[in-house]
């Protein structure tokens, strides 16, 4: 009995070990230069979010160019701080990519972590999202101006869908607040999805939100767009006035919006940086990906290196100071050497 048992187990073992080795070998290709093995891609937000979708959309275009698989994992938490720190602490050999959004740029002033994109090399800032201010169709407002005036007339009565400090609606709310008295009831949600659902149900009155998640509702007439957060009208959204139309003072904050990019530790070797930059640039230039970005309601950027840094720096300066002036920061941007815009 015992001998038979051992025999069965050993046959199983040989088969399964054989299979494991077989699959493994077939997956690996012989390659002399970087990358010689699978690359790990760490996505800083959870499955199904905008950052996740963007990351999973670009990766298949890049994999054949790198001749390696990029294994994507979601590692959310601490508003992206966990992923950012994790990638920063890995060996800077280019085998760990950070798929991130704008959040790390605010981590310092919000007291979450002191690692931001200054510690990284921007392989590619893929796109920036467009934001819109939307209202429930039952509300009387036809424009941002009407909304803002109503807020002045009925202070503390109008509900705005928001997020925690640093989130998109929160920052746009802070922007609106720079135009004098702005006494609304902010109701925080933990993402675009839940906030839009609440807006559709009339549980909040208006919401600054990413265009992606609202566009179809606007088109179907279930939501009314009051303004687009940009300094000029956007092709995708004909007829929706830019934020600056009634309030030119917003100009200094714009363009502003969430962005999505791929980063590696800044200490990675130059050859790795070049290889990745080229691959991602080519991948992001694929017409099919460009179409995806547009469908997704974002504006393609496809910039890297120094060009990306200029953008990242301006974004950080505008947003941190905006938050600081709204009293939402724990530490002044000054402490991190961030200049006032």
């Amino acid at each position: 009995m015992k001998r038979r048992e051992i025999l069965i187990w050993s046959i199983c073992s040989i088969l399964s070990v054989g299979a494991a080795v077989g699959i493994h070998l077939s997956a690996a290709t012989v390659n002399a230069t970087y990358p010689t093995r699978n690359i790990q891609g760490v996505i800083m937000w959870g499955a199904g979010g905008a950052t996740d979708t963007m990351s999973r959309a670009i990766t298949p275009y890049v994999e054949p160019l790198l001749n390696q698989e990029v294994i994507l994992t979601n590692r959310s938490g601490g508003a992206g701080a966990i992923s950012t720190k994790y990638v920063h602490h890995r060996k800077p050999d280019g085998y760990t990519l950070l798929y991130g959004a704008e959040n790390p740029q605010l981590h310092g002033v919000l007291g979450l972590s002191d690692v931001d994109y200054r510690e990284f090399y921007a392989v590619n800032v893929l796109a920036r999202g467009i934001s819109v201010i939307v209202a429930h169709p039952d509300t009387p407002w036809r424009s941002l101006k009407e909304l803002m005036e109503d807020v002045k007339n009925r202070p503390g009565e109008i509900k705005m869908g928001s997020t925690g400090p640093g989130g998109l609606p929160y920052v746009i709310g802070a922007m609106l607040g720079t135009q004098g008295e702005f006494d609304i009831i902010p109701v925080p949600f933990d993402g675009d999805g839940p906030a839009i659902t609440a807006l559709l149900g009339g549980h909040v009155d208006f919401l600054p939100s990413g265009y992606t998640a609202t566009s179809e509702h606007i088109r179907a007439g279930r939501l009314r767009a009051l303004a687009v957060v940009n300094d000029q009208e956007i092709e995708l959204l004909p007829g929706i006035p830019p934020l600056t139309q009634d309030y030119p003072a917003f100009k200094k904050f714009l363009p502003w919006g969430p962005f999505y990019g791929v980063f590696i530790d800044k200490d990675a070797p130059d050859s790795v940086k070049t290889k990745l930059t080229e691959a991602f640039h080519q991948g992001a230039s694929d017409p099919a990906f460009e179409k995806f970005v547009t469908d997704f309601g974002a504006i393609q950027m496809n910039v890297s290196g120094e060009e990306a840094n200029v953008f990242l720096k301006k974004w950080q300066s505008v947003t941190t100071w905006l938050l600081h002036d709204a009293g939402a920061t724990k530490t002044s941007p000054e402490a991190f050497g961030i200049e006032r815009p």
Binding site: R56, E216, H217, A220, D295
Partner: peptide, 11 residues
């Protein structure tokens, strides 16, 4: 989205 369909009420 990735497959080019816009999810929304008009779907």
């Amino acid at each position: 989205f990735i497959h080019g369909i816009q999810p929304g009420p008009l779907m």
